[in-house]
């Protein structure tokens, strides 16, 4: 098969899977929160409430499309589009499974194996700020603007600590390509053991970047009405909420790739020999393990949301600038010292 056709198939499959996972993440959130709050959650639409996301989607489509009279019409529409676009684009560099060999063709389950994969992720995450800023500004509403300013300043503050945490990781792995980082963890040990502080900083920053609790001040219902998506209704609001869940999914995937070995699992080669699996079958098992780990982290995101109270804005900025940034710098310094001591520099 032509390489281009294979890429198109991988892109379409990844797109469909991302949308499905985000859709059922909305349902999972309601069920998980219900279990934690000792109630049942949605169970009317379909068996065990499994068709609830479809009902939500139909509800969103059927609502009235409102554009406020004095709002900037094109910017109002572009805001959610940018948010969804950048949310989906990040998943292009994540390796979703091992290589599959068909005949003499080796297909990597990855849309684009860039040798600057980490920089690509940072570029796309930086662009994600625009979706919120433009949406908040174009609403012509003071509260939307305040919510947008808060959300975007939160995102750009935590991007810095995230970048510095990743620099320490790049120092130890020596490569910016996600595929190579995952393959190095197959040969060695999962990066969480090498960079525990980096993992902690990265996951806190991931919470802040995706505007998830406890950093969801910009958009919670009890503050500023709805924050930057106050004036949005129907599918444009759907895009914003969807973009948040897709961001959560992709953040979990990136965390798994960086720190938890990606699609590898412990003793996988012994497992493959024991069961006599071909390399293609092993790749499929690896893909399932990858998704299992990603789903665990999505559950972790939701778990934290319903456990910890949210930060006030000044506490949030204090944490980002005065705690995480020095910690990330110290992490780089310590990593450098240890690498020098071990003779790896």
């Amino acid at each position: 098969m032509e390489p281009l056709l294979i890429k198109v198939i991988i892109v379409v499959v990844l797109f469909v899977i991302t949308l499905l996972v985000a859709l059922y993440a909305t349902f999972a959130e309601r069920k998980v929160s219900a279990i934690m709050q000792d109630r049942i959650g949605p169970n009317r639409a379909g068996p065990f409430g499994l068709l609830q996301p479809l009902a939500d989607g139909v509800k969103m489509i059927m609502k009235e499309e409102l554009i406020p009279a004095l709002a900037n019409k094109w910017l109002f529409i572009i805001g959610p589009c940018i948010a969804l676009l950048t949310a989906l684009m990040t998943g292009a560099v994540v390796p979703w499974g091992g290589a599959i060999k068909i005949g003499d063709q080796v297909i990597n389950l990855q849309v684009a194996d860039l040798n600057i994969g980490i920089l690509y992720i940072f570029g796309v995450v930086s662009m994600g700020v625009y979706g919120i800023m433009i949406g908040g500004w174009a609403s012509n509403n003071k509260f939307s603007l305040i919510g947008a300013i808060r959300a975007s300043s939160q995102m750009i503050s935590y991007e810095i600590a995230m970048g510095l945490a990743i620099i320490a990781l790049v120092m130890t792995t020596g490569t910016l390509s996600l595929n190579e980082i995952v393959m190095q963890q197959d040969a060695g040990i999962a990066n969480i053991a090498i960079q525990p502080l980096g993992f902690l900083i990265f996951i806190v920053c991931a919470f802040a970047e995706t505007n998830r609790a406890p950093f969801d001040l910009p958009e919670c219902e009890t503050e500023l009405i709805g924050g930057y998506h106050t004036e949005y209704s129907s599918m444009k609001l759907g895009f914003y909420l969807f973009a948040e869940y897709i961001n959560m999914f992709i953040s979990s995937a990136v965390i798994v790739c960086f720190y938890f070995g990606g699609y590898n699992f412990p003793f996988q080669h012994v497992f493959a020999e024991f069961f006599g699996l071909s390399s293609n079958a092993l790749s499929i098992v690896q893909t399932f393990m990858m998704f299992g780990k990603v789903f665990f982290f999505i559950f972790f995101f939701m778990w934290v949301r319903w456990t910890i109270p949210r930060f006030r804005y000044d506490q949030l900025m204090n944490l980002g600038w005065k705690v995480l940034l020095p910690l990330a710098l110290a992490n780089i310094f310590i990593t450098g010292l240890v690498m020098w001591g071990m003779g790896k520099i």
Binding site: L119, F122, G123, S126, M127
Partner: peptide, 11 residues
Amino acid sequence: AAVHIIVYAGA
């Protein structure tokens, strides 16, 4: 190219 996007367009 990546640094250009991150620094100029992103910050």
